Computed example of a mutant assay.
Amino acid sequence: MAKGHRSQIKRARNENRDTRPKAHVKYARVSATKAKIVLDTIKGKGAGEALAILAYTPRYAARIIEKVLKSAVANAENNYGMDVSKLYVEEAYANQGPKLKRIRPRAQGRAYRIEKHTSHISIVLNER
């Protein structure tokens, strides 16, 4: 555990902070498995090329990921002053979020549970 005054602890924490531009979407209504399929297609690609790939990917997750990528590019440009043409997707991952539990009525008064999956999608960019 770090010792010292709270301001010293915070200062030390901020010095080791990751300075790569990133963006997250939490509780996206798409399963992590389906999001990972799309994310694997853009990993390591340039930001412009990744946006082009997502524009022609016929999956629901691609629309969500496109928004996250645009947000990460905007963060890089505005918060870090990076050159957009040099950016590439360094990390892209989707973690499981909470499941929305719903009930489906079945025959003879039974009820089956339906789990609607959510995910937390993150994209981290870097300059070449």
Rank of each mutant, 00 (worst) to 15 (best):
Met1Lys: 12
Ala2Tyr: 09
Ala2Ser: 09
Ala2Trp: 09
Ala2Asn: 05
Lys3Leu: 12
Lys3Gly: 15
Lys3Arg: 14
Lys3Cys: 01
Lys3Val: 14
Gly4Trp: 06
Gly4Asn: 09
Gly4Cys: 04
Gly4Phe: 08
His5Ala: 14
His5Gln: 13
Arg6Pro: 06
Ser7Phe: 10
Ser7Val: 12
Ile9Arg: 13
Lys10Leu: 14
Lys10Arg: 11
Ala12Cys: 08
Arg13Asn: 00
Asn14Arg: 09
Glu15Ile: 11
Arg17Glu: 10
Arg17Lys: 15
Arg17Asn: 00
Thr19Tyr: 11
Ala23Gly: 08
His24Phe: 12
Val25Ala: 15
Val25Gly: 15
Tyr27Ile: 08
Tyr27Arg: 12
Tyr27Leu: 14
Ala28Ile: 02
Val30Pro: 01
Val30Phe: 03
Val30Ile: 15
Ser31Gly: 15
Ala32Ser: 13
Thr33Gly: 01
Thr33Gln: 13
Thr33Arg: 13
Lys34Gly: 01
Lys36Asp: 06
Ile37Gln: 00
Ile37Ala: 00
Val38Cys: 04
Val38Gln: 00
Val38Lys: 05
Leu39Cys: 01
Leu39Glu: 01
Asp40Tyr: 00
Thr41Ser: 12
Thr41Val: 06
Thr41Phe: 00
Thr41Glu: 07
Ile42Ser: 00
Ile42Thr: 02
Lys43Pro: 00
Gly44Trp: 03
Lys45Asn: 03
Lys45Glu: 09
Gly46Phe: 07
Gly46Asp: 10
Gly48Lys: 13
Ala50Gln: 11
Ala50Phe: 09
Ala50Pro: 11
Ala52Leu: 14
Ile53Phe: 03
Ala55Gly: 10
Tyr56Phe: 15
Tyr56Asn: 12
Pro58Gln: 12
Arg59Pro: 08
Arg59Phe: 15
Arg59Val: 07
Arg59Thr: 10
Ala62Gly: 08
Ala62Cys: 08
Ala62Phe: 00
Arg63Thr: 13
Arg63Ala: 07
Glu66Gln: 10
Lys67Ser: 10
Lys67Ala: 02
Val68Pro: 00
Leu69Gln: 01
Lys70Ser: 07
Lys70Trp: 06
Ser71Met: 12
Ser71Asp: 12
Val73Tyr: 06
Val73Ser: 07
Val73Cys: 11
Ala74Leu: 12
Asn75Ile: 06
Asn75Gln: 04
Ala76Met: 04
Glu77Arg: 14
Asn78Trp: 03
Asn79Ile: 00
Asn79Ser: 11
Tyr80Trp: 04
Gly81Trp: 07
Asp83Glu: 09
Asp83Met: 00
Val84Leu: 08
Ser85Met: 01
Lys86Ile: 03
Lys86Pro: 05
Lys86Cys: 02
Val89Asp: 01
Val89Ser: 03
Glu90Val: 04
Tyr93Val: 10
Tyr93Phe: 15
Ala94Ser: 14
Asn95Met: 08
Asn95Leu: 07
Asn95Ile: 02
Pro98Ala: 13
Lys99His: 10
Lys99Asp: 10
Lys99Glu: 13
Leu100Ile: 15
Leu100Val: 15
Leu100Ser: 04
Arg102Met: 13
Ile103Tyr: 12
Ile103Gly: 06
Arg104Asn: 09
Arg106Val: 13
Arg106Ala: 13
Ala107Phe: 07
Gly109Thr: 11
Ala111Tyr: 12
Tyr112Asn: 10
Glu115Val: 03
Glu115Pro: 07
Glu115Ala: 12
His117Cys: 05
Ser119Trp: 03
Ser119Asn: 07
Ser119Gly: 04
Ser119His: 07
His120Glu: 05
His120Phe: 05
Ser122Thr: 15
Ile123Ala: 05
Leu125Met: 06
Leu125Pro: 00
Asn126Trp: 08
Glu127Pro: 06
Arg128Gly: 08
Arg128Pro: 02
